[in-house]
Design a protein around this nucleic acid. Structure first.
Lengths: 339, 339
DNA sequence: TTGAAAGCGCTAACAG
DNA sequence: CTGTTAGCGCTTTCAA
């Protein structure tokens, strides 16, 4: 591989001149510039960014770390972050901690040595107290912005989504359709968003003057447990005419339960769910759902990061992005209202 | 950020000594080593890998480029590649070309400057002739291995999957269950694997002495087109008792068609499909499917790459990995055989 | 404008 | 064993 010195020799100029045609602030005469360009082409020369990084003390790379590459939400964040980085002339390099704190630690350690200019991070352990490696990273002065979580006590820039307004919208949509009894199938109780969903659900019910029926608010991780939970709700004497579910796996569970009970959606029971980029495409009926601003989280995340790089001492920002309700086939007026 | 010089000063030794305790081949006396270690800890020193890379002329990074991060197959390849890289003390950095050749070109160009030690690549344009950037990359001496495709005329190491044995196994499985008429729902005709599937399907039928019925072999991209195609086959006077589908979206289409016609799976019609890591989990009945060795492709890809790095002049290797048939609920003996 | 030269932080001889 | 030093390839003063 050719070096700048070889290019200089072949063009009959000094290395300084080559460096200048390569983008220095100094202008080079057309005559020399042409010779240099020709030499570059002849030698198939690519400037060594490693050397350049060492000299200018920045790498022009930003790292994108997510905790679960198999999670479609995370993927969208990666895509958003990548696009924003490219657009700003940074090279996005992405890493997957695979939800393992030790792997995340490895990545972070490697990155420190590699001198990336900044990191957008979707943490592997958002709640647990095991984040000293992040803390050390921050203390060492590497700009970090946290995606989709706030790290307890770390005071980082972060961009998160608003679970409140979204869930509120969903329940209101159902209420405005005429539903009086709306059930909730929530994520497992210890999930970070679980409490939010529950609170907002109750809030929305009372806003709309609807009765809260305790056994209509259930939660389950996914799969058969969720199916059974949904089924039990639907078998109540006073069956709800609508369901709000906190995720696609849960929506699928409700759909299975409906089928098992010979009920139709949306004719007998309406459904609104937190969106999932994959399942929304294939579910029938097409689910009315709350699209999550994941791509935007990634995008805004690197924008925030770039600001932070530009001004390391600014006050940390907390940005919150709204989901959007997409009304599709799974929600309709209840049979009672239509009769 | 601390440098090796500062560490040396604080420990009262030379930089050479620090470098040696940091992993040089030379041994350092315990006394000095302890002082150095202490200084490193005090200063929170992380060796600058950029400088190191410049000096030793290798970065210890390998790049993983896939064309579609939203594709679960690609994700698994990334995971396999990452794990293999970490295990071999390389830092895997992954990139997503988003199926755009221009983005892939950007990535590849950036990587050349960055001097990654090697690249495993799932090309954005496996068939099209628009791969001079890959060609140039190869000519410049960067080790590359190609995943899941062979690049026309480029003579690279590659690791691909075997579509033959897998499809063969699938049809044989159905035949051994007693099915006499097995339909094929193939991917769209111009898809690279389409022809393979078709050929193997016919081969397998003739191996098993089964009749090939031309209208039973159909193809469609996905969604409603696939649904309609499946439905038309199932409405034939002499309906097949089993289906082999070339992917999860197609399997879903068959399932939808069965439901629409009031047929059950596997009681009325059996189904075997090429596996999909996501859908297999949620489909009911659980599909008998041909698991694709995607994780292994990624893993073996970097192993091959490491060999290539070790011996740049070895003859390129073409490694082919077999899928595995997982027998689940969607395949059973046909009603006729059970009666 | 152009060229010469001093490093960026690290490793690897080499000499002591 | 330890210290000194010459670069790795590039950018950036500083003189000419």
């Amino acid at each position: 591989v050719a070096t700048i010195k070889e290019v200089a020799k072949r063009a009959g100029v000094s290395v300084g001149t080559v460096s200048n045609v390569l983008g220095g602030s100094v202008t080079v005469s057309k005559r020399l510039r042409d010779r240099v360009l020709a030499a570059i082409k002849d030698l198939d020369y690519y400037p060594n960014q490693v050397a350049r990084s060492l000299k200018i003390r920045q790498t022009n790379m930003i790292a994108v770390i997510v905790s679960d590459l198999t999670n479609p939400f995370h993927i969208q964040m990666v895509r958003g972050a990548e696009d924003a980085a490219w657009r700003n002339n940074y090279l996005p390099v992405t890493f997957n901690s695979d939800s393992r704190v030790d792997r995340e630690r490895q990545v972070v350690t490697a990155l420190r040595g590699r001198r990336v200019d900044g990191i957008v991070l979707l943490p592997a352990a958002p709640d647990a107290g095991k984040n000293e490696h992040i803390c050390a990273l921050k203390d060492s002065g590497v700009p970090i912005v946290c995606l989709d979580h706030e790290l307890h006590g770390l005071d980082l820039d972060c961009v998160v989504r608003d679970n409140f307004n979204g869930a509120l919208q969903s329940v209101r949509h159902l209420a405005s359709l005429g539903h009086r009894y709306i059930a909730l199938l929530n994520v497992e109780p210890h999930h970070p968003a679980s409490r939010d969903h529950y609170l907002v659900y109750r809030q929305a019910l009372s806003d709309e003057g609807l009765e809260f029926v305790d056994p209509f608010a259930v939660s389950a991780p996914a799969g058969d447990a969720a199916y059974l939970a949904a089924k039990s709700v639907l078998e109540s004497a006073k069956r709800p005419s609508a369901f709000f579910t906190a995720g696609a796996p849960l929506a699928i569970a409700v759909l299975r339960a409906l089928k098992a009970l010979n009920l139709r959606c949306p004719e007998d029971v309406s459904l609104v769910t937190v969106d999932d980029p994959v399942f929304s495409e294939i579910l029938r009926p097409r689910p009315t759902s709350l699209a999550q601003p994941c791509y935007e989280i990634g995008w805004k995340g690197v924008e925030l990061l770039l600001q932070r790089i530009a001004d390391p001492h600014a006050k940390p920002v907390r940005m919150v992005l709204e989901p959007t309700l997409h009304i599709r086939e799974s929600s309709a007026a209840p049979a009672a209202a239509r009769a």
